[in-house]
Design a protein around this nucleic acid. Structure first.
Length: 267
DNA sequence: ATGGCTTGTCTTACAAGA
């Protein structure tokens, strides 16, 4: 038997793939992830940089949108086999926030959960409704015999240790009790929060805003998550955040967040 | 309570982000 192979899965909110392509390519080259979920492409399908990613060794599928949102999945030396784009449950929803594919033997859901500010208001209502649709769809994935991951920018601060100053954020949509409760209900289906599972109670941030040198001062939030179904969680090896990407000039406000897993049998 | 900064856009102001 061959030694079991390790796969690295990562999520990265690029905050505009047009501006951030050099950062993305440098990160791919250095860290060599096998599976990547991207959020906030902020570009239409026609201008997604598929050729540049192909040249870097990555097959891709993407769901763009003018100016806002937009998600993609990348596969190193492979092409993602798309199973879904867009969450079921609201045919009128035109925001590009969900894409799903089979990659290297894993069901991979890449998501960009709505921010929800300002609150209260229609954007917060949309966030809560989107979370209900995610919970309903995730129910169909969690008990699969195949490994599955939900990864992306969840725009949810799960607990007070996931924010540098809970009081400063207490009115924000990312920290509201009903948002946290919905995230807890998602986890309660059987999903493992991989960063927490690996790191215990350690403080981990994945986002630092552009104000007051928050990145350099490490005043951040943990809002990018990788949730693993039981079939994948049993293969979890390690997890982390590539904070060095956030400290580059002209960086996204998010850093790539990753796990390593033992590859599924037959991959 | 606000603003601080960054992105993309039918740009020189605005909406949206978190």
């Amino acid at each position: 038997m061959a030694l079991s192979k390790t796969l690295k899965l990562a999520t990265f909110n690029v905050n505009g793939i047009g501006t951030r392509l050099p950062h993305l390519l440098a990160w791919l080259e250095k860290e060599q992830p096998d599976v990547v979920a991207l959020q906030e492409l902020k570009t239409v399908d026609a201008t997604f940089p598929a050729a540049e990613l192909e040249a870097a060794g990555y097959g891709a599928i993407w769901h763009g949108q003018k100016s806002w949102n937009g998600v993609a999945l990348l596969a190193r030396d492979a092409v993602p086999v798309e199973s879904r784009r867009g969450l079921p449950g609201d045919p009128r929803d035109e925001q590009s926030r969900y894409i799903e594919a089979a990659i290297h033997g894993i069901v991979v859901a890449g998501l960009y959960l709505p921010n929800g500010n300002p609150r209260p208001g229609p954007k917060f209502d949309y966030k809560l409704a989107w979370m209900e649709r995610l919970i309903r769809h995730a129910r169909t994935l969690v008990d699969l015999p195949h490994p599955a991951v939900l990864m992306g920018d969840f725009n949810v601060i799960p607990t007070d240790i996931d924010v540098y100053d809970p009081k400063a954020w207490r009115k924000d949509a990312l920290i509201q009790p009903e948002v946290r409760a919905a995230f807890e209900r998602l986890l309660a289906q059987g999903w493992a929060d991989a960063l927490r599972r690996v790191s215990g109670e350690k403080v981990i941030y994945t986002f630092w805003d552009y104000f007051r040198q928050h990145a350099e001062r490490d005043r951040g939030l943990r809002i990018d998550h990788l949730l693993l179904n039981p079939a994948l969680a049993k293969n979890l090896k390690d997890a982390g955040v590539d904070r060095w990407v956030r400290l580059q000039p002209k960086a996204s406000d998010h850093a790539p967040t990753w796990i390593t897993v033992r590859a599924p049998a037959g991959v």
